[in-house]
Amino acid sequence: MRRALVVISALLLGAFVLQFVFAAVGGFTKPAGDGAYTLHSVNGMVVIPLLTLLTALVAALAKAPGRLIGLAILPIGLVVLQALIAMLADGFTDASGVSTPLSLTIGGLHALNGIIVVHVVVGVHRAARRLAGPVPADDGVAAREVEPA
């Protein structure tokens, strides 16, 4: 189950990498219509929350320390915060829907929070790898430390 935690946390990290790619796709789509950020939205509101819940569940089943289980569930809260930041930024556009300095500043917090959540997921993955222990050698022989000559 601990090896499964490593795999699922790697998948979660991969989903976050894709999230940044999908944000760039939306940002560079010309003309930018309502669907420019569809991949970003679906990944952020469906795939990432499901993988986060699965990661936390697998961490609990793997009898991971409580701190790791808590860290594994934290991205759900940060994803909710992402949605709130995006809605708040949209709420501060002007009457014609044009960005204002305030809406752009709030939108910048969306990107900053994205960086923070990726940092959390990297921490989950690293902790999962430590918890799983060393990976056995391919030939079935335990890996040995080489003593310096």
Rank of each mutant, 00 (worst) to 15 (best):
Q82C: 01
L81W: 07
T29C: 07
H40N: 03
A24W: 10
G77R: 01
L68A: 13
A24I: 15
L88V: 12
A59I: 08
T93C: 10
L71W: 08
G44T: 07
G27M: 15
P65Y: 09
G27F: 14
I69N: 06
A36G: 09
L51T: 01
G33Q: 11
R67N: 13
S41P: 00
V42P: 04
M45F: 03
M87Y: 10
R67S: 14
G26E: 03
D94G: 13
A23C: 08
L61F: 06
A83E: 00
N43P: 02
G44F: 08
R67H: 13
V80T: 07
V46S: 01
I48W: 00
A24D: 11
L71P: 04
Q82P: 02
V47H: 01
N43H: 02
L81G: 07
P49V: 04
T29E: 01
V46I: 06
L61H: 08
F28E: 13
G27L: 15
D34V: 15
M45H: 06
V79S: 14
L53Q: 02
A89C: 11
L78T: 03
V42R: 10
T93V: 08
I85L: 09
S41W: 00
V42W: 11
F92D: 05
M45P: 03
P65G: 12
F28G: 09
A56G: 07
H40Q: 05
T93Q: 11
L88I: 11
A64H: 15
V79P: 05
V58G: 10
G35C: 08
V80C: 06
T38G: 10
A36F: 05
F92R: 09
H40P: 04
D94F: 14
G26W: 05
A23H: 06
D34P: 15
A36W: 07
A95S: 13
A23P: 09
G27N: 14
G35M: 12
M87T: 10
H40E: 01
A86E: 10
A59C: 12
D94W: 15
L50M: 05
L84G: 11
T55Y: 04
L71H: 05
G44S: 08
D90L: 06
T38M: 14
G91C: 10
L84M: 14
F92V: 02
D90H: 06
I48Q: 00
Y37V: 11
G44L: 04
R67I: 10
K30D: 04
I76P: 00
T55C: 07
A56C: 06
K63A: 15
F28C: 08
L53T: 05
K30F: 02
Y37F: 15
G33P: 13
L61C: 07
T52L: 05
H40V: 02
L54T: 13
D94K: 15
P75M: 00
L74S: 12
A72M: 03
L39C: 02
Y37M: 09
A56E: 04
V58M: 11
T93M: 10
L39A: 09
A89F: 15
M45G: 09
A95Q: 14
I69M: 10
A59G: 11
I48F: 02
L50R: 05
A95H: 06
G77E: 02
A23D: 08
D94T: 13
L53S: 05
I73L: 03
L61P: 03
F92I: 02
G27K: 09
L54H: 05
I69D: 02
M45I: 12
G44N: 06
P75T: 00
L81S: 08
P75G: 00
L84F: 11
L81H: 07
A64Q: 14
K30Q: 04
A60M: 13
P49M: 00
A24M: 11
